[in-house]
Nucleic acid binder design. Structure first.
Lengths: 136, 136
DNA sequence: ATCCTACGATGGACAGAGTCCAAGTCAAGA
DNA sequence: TCTTGACTTGGACTCTGTCCATCGTAGGAT
């Protein structure tokens, strides 16, 4: 966590209290929060932080590769702080809960060259869908 | 295409001019349109069709399994009329263009039981990302 | 062919998520 | 301590999608 703050500082990030709080909120809970949920938790620590600042900071963390942005349901994007371990996501079709999962092999290898249409394919995002134990 | 209208009629769909136009727009172009793009094309054929009607009809087509809903970018959902052939999607990270692709094997098989956490996993949506020839 | 009626269409208001921007504030180097 | 440009603020705005009361009509019944 303080690792994250270190890395950000090393990249020339101006360390404001707002950015610190957002980074701490993300690093502190290994769940997949929406921007508004991050904002709510940030407000608990720093009451005056603006929604726009949370959006800005999340966008910067995504651009720096420290956080992964998910849009599993077409509603609010969710932010995954676990960006340094390759993984995929398992989503409950009913309640929307998300788990990180680790399939075997590299999903990129199953896309043959003739199915790439000249694209430079760099990654594959897999969303497994089904019902969680509570909803089944 | 008329196949689609046949199937819908067989399922008790009331065949209104609005629904026919939406179905024709989707079946006529094998691209991945947003709801507003569908609406724009529908208006060209039936000027008075309402946005709400397009949304309603698209939702029904998805519920009937005739169309697949995609949210690849967290912006507008896109509608894929190619629902009867299993496939995945290849998206350009720069311009957003989408191609249907066919990876080898079944993506579900690479998720081992101990990585399913008690979920009843029913499908896997794979989004390959990279740069298209024009953007590379 | 006409009538009935429940299902579908309309369009305007509303809601949720995210972006923009002008003005004010402050982190950090000089 | 001063300076300055990067950052924050908050409110207006945009985009996407939903809701709902009212109106219209497809298609079965007569």
């Amino acid at each position: 966590m303080s690792d994250l703050l270190e890395r950000l500082r090393a990249r020339g990030w101006r360390m404001t209290s707002q950015r610190r709080v957002v980074a701490e909120v993300l690093a502190g809970e290994h769940v997949h929060l929406t921007a508004d949920e991050v904002h709510a938790r940030a407000v608990a620590r720093l009451p005056e932080i603006a929604r726009a600042t949370v959006y800005n900071t999340l966008g910067e963390l995504v651009a720096l590769g420290e956080v992964v942005e998910l849009s599993t349901d077409g509603r609010a994007k969710r932010y995954d702080p676990n960006a340094h371990h390759a993984h995929q996501h398992l989503v409950c079709s009913n309640c929307g809960i998300i788990r990180d999962v680790h399939p075997t092999g590299d999903p990129l290898t199953v896309l043959p060259p003739e199915e790439r249409f000249g694209f430079t394919v760099s990654k594959a995002d897999v969303t497994y869908r089904g019902l969680c134990p509570a909803c089944a």
